[in-house]
Amino acid sequence: MASLPQQDRPPRVFVDPLIETNPITLRVLGLCSALAVTSSLVPALIMSAAVIAVLSFANVAVSLLRHVMPPSIRLIIEVTLIATAVIVVDEVLKAFAPDVSSVLSVFVGLIITNCIVLARVESFAMHNGVWASLLDALGNGLGYSWILVLIGAIRELLGFGSLLGYKVLPLASTGGWFEPNRLMLLTPSAFFILAVLVWWIRERRPAQRKDAQGR
């Protein structure tokens, strides 16, 4: 993967992951729990909030402990901290948003294995201060989120004609002109939208492109 310079001064730490070093489109991280929940906007939003929460907690916790962490159990401690955050988020969702929680089902638990969290914790929080780690978490979280929300919005709009559950486009079945695109209801559509998104970003930022061998 191409490695782009990432300046560590606070504003860039937050801003870069939004496009320049976006975790999904550049680093190919965090796809797992991303695409499957994007069939409509609400789960995408809740999932994004969950990931931002977990990422922030994990980054801050690891950053606080980075000087006392014995190398031999480093990975286990990181996973434990991440798992703690995920358990808390999962329980909170089950208590205050049970309908969305059942839609998201196992995917909230899978945030533990979400590559973004582990990658940021290992590569940034282990070597940087608490404030910078928090910014990094927020930046990466938002970088992840806007893509998720965009895909969710497109899929819900074209697949159901609604956004956040509210009818936006008049459906043909109720006398309107909009014929919902059934493909959008299937998970492969998330891939296609993502491909177009990556294409668009790399047309604007040629530095992110691969050579002919795909490297």
């Binding site: 491909a195 990556v198 294409w199 691969k210």
Partner: peptide
Amino acid sequence: AGLRGLGI
């Protein structure tokens, strides 16, 4: 060019 690697 833009699709190479990840996109495709």
